[in-house]
Design a protein around this nucleic acid. Structure first.
Lengths: 125, 125
DNA sequence: TTATCAGTTAGAGTATACTCTAAGTCAAGA
DNA sequence: TCTTGACTTAGAGTATACTCTAACTGATAA
């Protein structure tokens, strides 16, 4: 049981973003005190942790919202939920592959600056 | 020497995006025919290829524009250019690491659907 | 010569994902 | 009681990266 301030600090996500995530359904509704103030429990924190991880990997909010929606509809949506995860896994694998290619290209270019371009420039002085 | 239509097709980048990239300086100015029509040469195509790769890895346009700007200022900017590449390489490495973590988490969850959640649900029928 | 078609521009519009603002509520300490 | 400070909401604003629109030009085929 934690306040929005505590959760915001713990996960380094702004309070505005935490409210936004709840509003759009990226996480299920957070329990509230009698006066309407958010009181995050274990489950809510688990969702936040998951979404922080997924979002930091660039997984689209849209797909994650669908996942949460299905989750709240109950057990019988398990297969559909798994399908979403598989789709996103494939997309992510692809992205990582492309990024690895760019990383290789960057490293190649950096090496050329070190071994060719900068030495040549220095010699000319 | 190629038209914008050919280059657009070759790299699967819309003509609008090619013009946009040139306008904001993500690629150096493309040679023009006497009537002002773009006539892409080897160099221009090389820049497009590079930027397609960098952008598909999510490298910020801002940093790439700075790189192109320095490149056009001449040889003496080599060190500054290399610094940009190194910064972006470090950012990219970090991103790949985070994405790999998310990928692992996704695969773990998918496995749980296959081995626990879905079988449990099927048994209950 | 006229229409068609690919090209040109500036600038407005869109999608995604926040981020901020204004106006208000509620509980606790001075 | 008053004020302070953390919380609430709806809705407007922002950043990034395109994407589209309108209006125009210039070369070529009928």
């Amino acid at each position: 049981m934690a306040t929005i301030a505590e959760v915001s600090k713990k996960y380094d996500i702004s309070q505005a973003t935490l409210r936004y995530y709840e509003k759009i359904g990226l996480i299920p509704p957070v329990p509230r005190s009698k006066s309407g103030i958010r009181d995050y429990d274990e489950k809510s924190c688990g969702w936040i942790e998951l979404m922080k991880c997924m979002r930091s990997a660039g997984i689209q909010i849209e797909a994650l919202i669908e996942y949460v929606k299905l989750f709240q509809e109950g057990e019988h949506t398990a297969k559909a939920r798994k399908d979403i995860l598989v789709d996103q896994r494939d997309i992510l694998e692809d992205k990582i592959k492309r990024m690895q290619e760019s990383l290789d290209k960057l490293n190649y270019k950096i090496d050329r600056y070190d071994t060719v371009i900068i030495p040549k420039m220095e010699k000319r002085r």
